[in-house]
């Protein structure tokens, strides 16, 4: 019949059906498999950040010129770099600093965004108009451009890298916070609270803020991944942590020079970032779904 499933006016009751149950089971199995896989990845990266020695006993800085540019092998699963350092150890030991930069940048971006967003959402018409304009102007420096300007002004270092990425992520969060605060402020349930005679302070702290910030938790999960990617991009361009420190961005930068002879120097730090950010995305979506269905139960 028709390909566009036109749902019946009342969704069919959930009970009973075999094929539906099977399909639902398969969907949840797939979903929970992806969830657990993502969770394992995130836990491993966190472990690497806290106790890298557990996962990679080799010294990430130990130079062994005789072993430079070794392709991946049993001895060096991710190969070695131009100085014969073990890439796997460096990836594991780099997790700490990369994660710190990502989390720090997200925190900076969020704090700025919350200040801006609350000012816009709660501060009245004039404040809102100004905040909207500020966000709009910041949007005109797309992506890592804002970060590049800050690095041009302050020079490259791990700190600038973190602050620069944080500032670059700010407009996106700020727009979201503002929109959320305005939506909640205009909701029927806030009006109900008003009709009950609650004080503005009580409505703000018990109703507006908790509801406005609820979706932020999911966003932050996704945002940390984005911040790590941006920081790594800056590192890749040579504008972050300087060698020989083990940090994902700096490793990418070093590998860029030797891309035609030692692809593994860029491939493995890169795929680590991909898998990690993808896992954060999957976890974020699970959180979101849990929040949505939690509300609908």
């Amino acid at each position: 019949m028709t390909a566009l499933a036109t749902a019946p006016e009342t969704a069919a009751p959930a009970a009973g059906s075999r094929s539906r149950a099977r399909r639902a089971r398969r969907a949840t199995a797939l979903r929970s498999a992806s969830f657990w896989l993502a969770a394992v990845v995130v836990v491993l990266v966190l472990l690497a950040a806290v106790a890298p020695g557990l996962l990679a006993p080799q010294d990430p800085l130990e130079i062994s010129l005789g072993e430079s540019f070794d392709a991946p092998s049993a001895a060096h699963v991710f190969g070695t770099d131009q100085s014969g350092r073990d890439v796997f150890s460096r990836v594991v030991h780099g997790a700490g600093q990369s994660l710190a930069i990502g989390l720090g940048a997200t925190a900076i971006g969020l704090v700025g965004a919350i200040v801006l967003g609350l000012l816009g959402g709660l501060g009245g018409r004039l404040a809102d108009a100004s905040v909207t304009r500020v966000i709009e102007v910041l949007y005109a420096f797309p992506g890592i451009l804002l970060a590049l300007i800050l690095i041009a002004v302050y020079g490259s270092s791990a700190l600038t890298q973190m602050v620069a990425v944080g500032v670059a992520t700010m407009p996106g969060y700020a727009r979201m916070v503002r929109g959320q605060v305005l939506a909640v402020k205009g909701s029927l349930y806030v009006e109900s609270a008003r009709a009950l005679g609650h004080s503005p302070a009580r409505i703000l702290t018990r109703t507006i803020l908790p509801n406005a910030f609820r979706p932020l938790t999911v966003l932050v999960t996704l945002g940390v991944g984005q911040a790590i990617v941006w920081a790594a991009a800056l590192g890749f361009l040579g504008m972050g942590v300087q060698p020989p420190t083990a940090e994902w961005g700096a490793m990418l930068n070093a590998g860029r020079t030797y891309i035609q002879q030692a692809w593994w120097m860029d491939f493995f730090p890169g795929i680590t970032i991909v898998v990690f950010t993808l896992s954060l995305t999957v976890l974020g979506r699970h959180l979101q779904r849990a929040a949505d269905s939690g509300a609908s139960r």
Partner: peptide, 8 residues
């Protein structure tokens, strides 16, 4: 008429 084996 049933949807996914649930008769409505």
């Amino acid at each position: 008429v049933s949807f996914d084996d649930v008769e409505v």
